[in-house]
Structures are given as C-alpha cells and as structure tokens.
Design a binder for these strands. Structure first.
Lengths: 193, 193
DNA sequence: AACGGCTCTTGATCTAAATCAACAAATACA
DNA sequence: TGTATTTGTTGATTTAGATCAAGAGCCGTT
C-alpha cells in the first residue's frame, strides 16, 4: 500500500528514510467496495485520497439529475474535492468506486502539518498540482475548440488505457457528450476504415 | 514592481528579508505595450511571468483561425504556457497584452534554482497551483453543465471586475460563446428586468 | 436457466447556439 | 474634427449534438 505511495512520491522528489517514516504517519488506509461513496455532494471533503489500487470516479450532478464526469483516479492518482478539502466548504462533487479500491487518506490538518514538517512534500505537491494544471488547461482548450469526434479521438490517443478500462457511457460523460452521440461516433470511425 | 510581487507572495507564505533578496535576483523586469506578444504559439515558452501592472490575455487559435480565450492575467496573476515552460516543448497558446503591462519574468532554470534555494517558494507555488486547479475544476464543470446564459451570469457573479475591464467579444470567447450569442444574452437579461 | 438490470445501439425529432450578413456605435488616431 | 478601425447589435438561416423512444446484447445473481 505505502509502497505504491512512495513509488510515486520518489519519482518527483527524494525523501530520506526518516522523512518517509514521518510522512507515513499522517495517512490512514481505507478500502472501498465497488459503488461505495468516498464523498457525497453537500458533505465536507475531509480527505485528500491517494489511490493505491482500484478505480474511482469523481462527478457532479446538475439540477436535472444528470451526472457529469470530472475525472477518473486509479493507481497512483490523488482525488478529492480540492475546494472543499482546503476551505472546509461543502463539496459540489461526488466520488465513488468503479472498482474495489485501496486508498490512503490524509486530512487537511494532517496535510498542513506534514508539509511543514517535511517541506519536500510541498515540492512534491507543487509538481503534482502543476502537472494536473496543465492537463486541465489542455482539457479546457479541447472542450471549446474540438468537435465531439475530435475529443474522442484525442482522448484515445492521449489515454487509451482509460478508454479501455471505463464503461463507454462514463467516457461519453467525461467528454461532455450524450452516450448516444459517442456510440454514433464510434460507428462512424469504424465505418470509415 | 517587486512590491506587488512580494505583497502577493507574503499573503501565502512568510519570507525573511534575506529570502526576499534571494528571490528577487531570479526575476527580470519587462514592459509590454498593448497588442505586443509575450508568447507566440510554436515558440518555446521561456518565462513564467508575474503581472505587476496591466492586463494580459492567453488564448489559442484553432485550424479555422478562430481565437479561444484561456485566461486573463492582471495585477497579481501569473501567466505562461505551463506545459511548454516546464517541459521545453512548443507552446500551443499565445499571450499578448490587452493593456500596457509591467512584468517580472523568471526562466525555468532560475525557477528550479530558486525553489531549491528557498523551499518556501515551493510552498507558495503549491498553494498557488492548488488554487488555480480548483478554479479550473469549477470552470470545466461549468462548461458542460451550464447553458450559455448561466455561464455568463455565473461569471458576472464570480468575477464582475473582469466583465467590466475586458471587451465583450473576449468575454464571449472566454465563455466559449459566439460574440453574437453573448450580445443577445445581455439583451434578454436587460429586457427581463 | 432465467430473471432483472445495466450498457449499448439505432432511428426520428428537436433545439440551443453557431454562422452568415449587414449595419450601428464607439474609439483611436492623424 | 473627420475618417478608419474595432467592437457591438439585430435578424435570418443552419447545424451539431441532445433528447426521446424502443429494442438488443450482456452480464451477475439466485
């Protein structure tokens, strides 16, 4: 469990054994079964969660009751409602498990204390957030400049594993498309070859 | 110039006088005239830029030649093509000045050295990136769940100063709308009152 | 093995917003 | 002060993708 965590941290910063020991103490392990919630809209997001195993989804629900996917998190990803976690306000998103998962959780207070004790964790998260930032930047660009088909093709190119692992209706939602639209797009692409 | 920078940094982390002196040495001031480019698509983004005064825009251009706004940066904001800056790959966005601007620039090498010398700057950028991350998160949600009118109203509520300061056609582009559509939305809203 | 529920597909119809076109206001600039 | 360029408005038309509806395949569960 912690091996997965440290494997990921050590890719970005180096930590001494003592630092690793310190970091370790701030996390709590948790298992989540398929379909179980980690966070529900309206609650406060108490934890930043590292996925050691399995697959989670984070999504929000509009007034009509339709779900919109935000992101998928599997081995090596972090997930939470960032805004709620850091400010204590109510979460606007839901997080649940698509596959049984093993997680490592950290609270906001523990996070604060950990970064002060081990400043390299500030660096780790700086790099992590910076990376997610430009992924989100590109996704935002893609959401306005690309057609439905271009979005799908570009996702397949940039993240084929995701398209394979996640049900098609969730992929459609992630791209901001109706499931019927994605189905038709796939047909068209297959047809053209 | 540097006062603006340190005012912003000190809101998030505390720096000793020596640390401030050190940080200062890594930046180069630059002035930009209205309509002048800071970065053009295809070039490598050499600098992360802090806006001390004025107003910049970052946007990209699709195959049809249409511009799509990514973000506006004024006093106290940072701007760059994050991906290009940190990886050295070609930039996919353009950045230019909407109003004459005063900037502080830092290169990727200087950035790396600065964060190693003054680890609190890792913390500063961790917090900064974390904040932008959830702004982008919300914007991405809004871009799929909201109608054109809802997007405009929510921008007016969350950032009225922006709507006031920036020409309407750029606001439209920022929201992913045709300028005509925004014009009609404003008419409808005014009409209903 | 068969039942109920998910997930995906296909067709018909609808709609929000884009596009095209022309003109009007506002700013800049000489 | 007058001309040019940019920015914004209004109307007519088109279109990409959503929505509605119905059926087909595909499991996990008892």
């Amino acid at each position: 469990m912690f091996e997965v965590l440290f494997a990921h941290i050590l890719q970005k910063v180096s930590l001494t054994d003592e630092e690793q020991e310190t970091v370790r103490t701030y996390f709590t392990p948790k298992n989540l079964r398929k379909r179980q919630y980690l966070l529900q809209e309206g609650d406060t997001c108490k934890y930043l969660s590292f996925v050691a195993k399995g697959l989670l989804r984070s999504y929000n629900v509009d007034e009509k009751g339709d779900e919109h996917m935000n992101l998928f998190a599997w081995e090596g990803w972090w997930t939470s409602d960032m805004h709620s976690f850091f400010t204590g306000e109510k979460a606007v998103i839901n997080i649940d498990a698509i596959e049984d998962a093993e997680l490592l959780l950290i609270t906001a207070e523990a996070f604060e204390e950990m970064t002060l004790k081990v400043p390299k964790m500030d660096r780790y998260f700086r790099i992590l957030f910076q990376n997610s930032l430009f992924t989100k930047e590109r996704r935002l660009i893609s959401s306005v400049t690309h057609t439905a088909e271009e979005k799908y093709i570009s996702l397949m190119e940039s993240n084929p594993a995701l398209v394979q692992r996640v049900p098609q209706n969730l992929i459609a939602s992630y791209l901001g498309l109706a499931p019927e639209t994605l189905s038709r797009i796939k047909k068209n692409i297959a047809h053209r070859k």
